[in-house]
Simulated scan of single mutants.
Amino acid sequence: MLMYKGKKNQVTGNRLLISITVIGSAGPIRFVVNEEEVVGNVMDTALRAYAREGRLPVLGSNISDFVLYCPIAGTEALNPLEAIGSFGVRNFMLCKKPQVVEEVGNAKPVTVGITRKNSGSWKSWFNKSLNMKVSSH
């Protein structure tokens, strides 16, 4: 009896284990992606994994409400159309975009972002995380 062996799904390019830290969450989300995968798809996968794991705070699934940062590369948000492997790093940070809520009358618009109930703010936490040295094995 001759057995037919079908082709497996072949992935072109290298695969990377990436770690995405969500501000305000307990720990990073880790998953494997193709290095040619675009940043927008990686953000979508991270938000789905975050929701599937039932993490808090609840974020939602609209990727246009979030930005992905590479703490080593600087404070500029990554372009959602670039390949994730083009940055040469595997650790990223997912942050919610600040929302502008306009007041009625002559008051200035107020920016609403992620807040923390304990001491410190997300900005100070972000700056501290940029200064941390991460050793690789």
Rank of each mutant, 00 (worst) to 15 (best):
K96C: 11
R52D: 08
K96R: 15
T45M: 02
S64V: 02
N34Y: 00
L81M: 12
V134Q: 10
V89A: 01
T12W: 04
F92M: 06
P71I: 05
E37P: 00
G85Y: 00
S19I: 01
M1K: 12
K5R: 11
N91V: 11
V32F: 01
L2T: 10
G27F: 05
H137L: 14
F92W: 06
S129E: 08
G27Q: 08
M43H: 04
S121R: 04
G113K: 09
P57M: 03
V101L: 14
R30E: 12
N91A: 11
D44I: 05
S86G: 06
G60T: 09
H137G: 09
R30W: 01
V38W: 01
S121K: 04
G88H: 03
L59I: 02
G88Y: 01
F66S: 07
F66R: 06
C95V: 11
A83E: 09
S64M: 09
G60F: 08
S61C: 02
W122M: 14
A51R: 05
K97P: 07
V112Q: 02
Q99S: 11
Q99A: 10
K128A: 09
L78F: 10
R30H: 06
M43E: 14
V11P: 00
I23P: 02
P57H: 04
R15P: 00
K128P: 03
A73I: 14
F92K: 01
H137R: 03
P98G: 15
N62Q: 14
A83R: 06
S124L: 05
G105L: 06
N34T: 03
K96L: 15
Y4D: 15
R90T: 07
A46Q: 05
N91Y: 13
F92G: 01
Q10V: 09
L59R: 14
N34A: 03
K117L: 09
I23W: 00
L56R: 11
S135A: 08
K128H: 05
E35A: 00
E102G: 10
N106C: 03
A49K: 07
G27A: 04
S19H: 14
G54C: 05
V58C: 10
S121I: 08
V11K: 07
L94N: 04
L59H: 05
N62I: 10
L78N: 02
P57E: 06
R48T: 09
N9M: 05
S25G: 14
I23T: 07
S19N: 07
K7R: 13
N62A: 15
G27T: 12
T45H: 08
L16Q: 08
